[in-house]
Design a protein around this nucleic acid. Sequence first.
DNA 1: CTGTTAGCGCATTCAT
DNA 2: ATGAATGCGCTAACAG
Lengths: 338, 338
Amino acid sequence: MGKKKAAVTLHDVANKTGVSVSTVSRVLAGKEYISPRTRQKVMATVAEMNYSPNAMARGLKSGQSNMIALVIPSIHNLMFPVLTRGVEDTARKNGYMVILCNTDEDTDAEKGYITKLRNSWVDGMIFATMLPDSHYIRELRQSGFPVVLTSRAYDKTIDAVVIDNVSASYDATCYLIGKGYRRIAFAMGPDFQLYEDRFQGYCNALKENGIPFDERLVMHETDGVNSFAGLIRKMIEEQGKPDAVFASTDNRAIVIMRTLYDMGFRIPDDIAVMGFDNVDFSSLVEPPLSTVSQPLYDIGATATRRLIHQIRAVRNTGVLDPPVVEQLETHLLIRQST
Amino acid sequence: MGKKKAAVTLHDVANKTGVSVSTVSRVLAGKEYISPRTRQKVMATVAEMNYSPNAMARGLKSGQSNMIALVIPSIHNLMFPVLTRGVEDTARKNGYMVILCNTDEDTDAEKGYITKLRNSWVDGMIFATMLPDSHYIRELRQSGFPVVLTSRAYDKTIDAVVIDNVSASYDATCYLIGKGYRRIAFAMGPDFQLYEDRFQGYCNALKENGIPFDERLVMHETDGVNSFAGLIRKMIEEQGKPDAVFASTDNRAIVIMRTLYDMGFRIPDDIAVMGFDNVDFSSLVEPPLSTVSQPLYDIGATATRRLIHQIRAVRNTGVLDPPVVEQLETHLLIRQST
DNA sequence: CTGTTAGCGCATTCAT
DNA sequence: ATGAATGCGCTAACAG
């Protein structure tokens, strides 16, 4: 069989310069106690031979890869491109690269990534998935591996960056009620804590304002976001039109808006619509969507900073710092759909 | 200083089982000539100790990392989440992981990734950026490193997966003309070949249909997508309204649609709008956007397959296969904005 | 200031 | 069928 063209190594550079490998290594590491002349000569050959260090050898030696993994449901979901930029920008600024892992919210896929990556491809992992409690993630953390969660906080035993879904959702619902809407439908997501919380906030607001909760006004996603096209249609046919719809994500809100539009309703005149997330596109739809703005980029950036902090803690002290759950602020963004 | 908790190594497993490291290595590699009993014992300790191989040691030894890099302008641009899934799914199916690199179309950033990654973090790279000819990428390829381009083909000396922008754009413009639109504005992008091609197709269609080209009907992006809000406004104030607008990307089309809407125009009754790309959201805006559909997922998947093919070629024969430029089909997707 | 050496964890060749 | 020994490319400890 053939073999790959051998890359130039430290050894080659040393030979050519007429010094030892360790000298070259020192020069490259910017160590002191190197004579200017030697340094200069080495730098010259390095440039001449176009040498660049073998990262895997370096990693094997140092036990660090300077890579982190970002585990998300799917980059296809509009929440994540923004969060991902927050992660990547922060990582790069600190000398880390990021490996992207799409799980489609599949527990086995998540587990697969963990077992594959923990053993030294990556120095730490960020989980932005919404899966319920995962044994593997706890175990990772317990074994001293840096892990940061977003979108879920477990029980504060793991570092996390979150928002207060219950109160954000409560505020949004109160706003709708304040505008005079009474029959407020809710578009529920799959069975994740995240959506339970948003639903809870909605219920709390209803109760505090003396509005009876009506189970028939909550739509449960059956088969992906698009199922809401059918759900809202069915609800209106059976229950009559609601005054407003509060969707647990912008994606759901937008699908609902389109359907409402197709059915001939005007927004917000006939029915108001409120979203959650403030995904990029929410300002571009017609009418621009009122929503709960979540600092997606910042969540990514904060999670990454925390992760890198923990990576350094492990390197320096041998153990992880105690976990911290950081809560970031959301705010109600009123545009024209309410 | 402290030290990281040592991971369990082949050595540990060997010791505990009472065999040599090479035996353990063989068992794990599924080699033959191992007594069933030994195999069994080894497997037991592996499971018991929760051993997993150190990827960097393995990589150092084998010269392969089983990672590839995907270089894109920004995951934030709606073209790329879909393309990225195509890449990631295909990569994973073949045992590769992907490192995501956002360059914001900055040549230095691109160069930085190249120098950092080529030396053995990744086995190959996909460039989905639109930057003009890059010396570094050619050099990569020439040095025998697997590279695949999308969105640009250079001169067929590098593997690429592309679409025919000129003719796709030509077809779209002809469609508009066929519908009776005469004053067709064009929303031009930055100075990349890609947009030149789309512009060329637009010009060709005009000429073939005997419609004089009017420079004042082409808008040039000044400062990001949002600049088209001002540009379309200004154009209409100065030149009167066009019959239709053909935007070089969906993003631009959508910003323009919003502005038109705000100005009180109805789409497509007053002004038709045509996009390019068929980004996810184009079906969700109001009215759903007519556009040139580009097989984004497939572009990513095809590029990845080709890249992996080349990686294997290098491993087996020592050299890259001759470059292939694959052209994928686009089609006109007529929705309600025209 | 610089060279020699050992060893990171693994796969593999050579013995046995 | 299995063990011992070597080396992938690099860094760091130890000698000068």
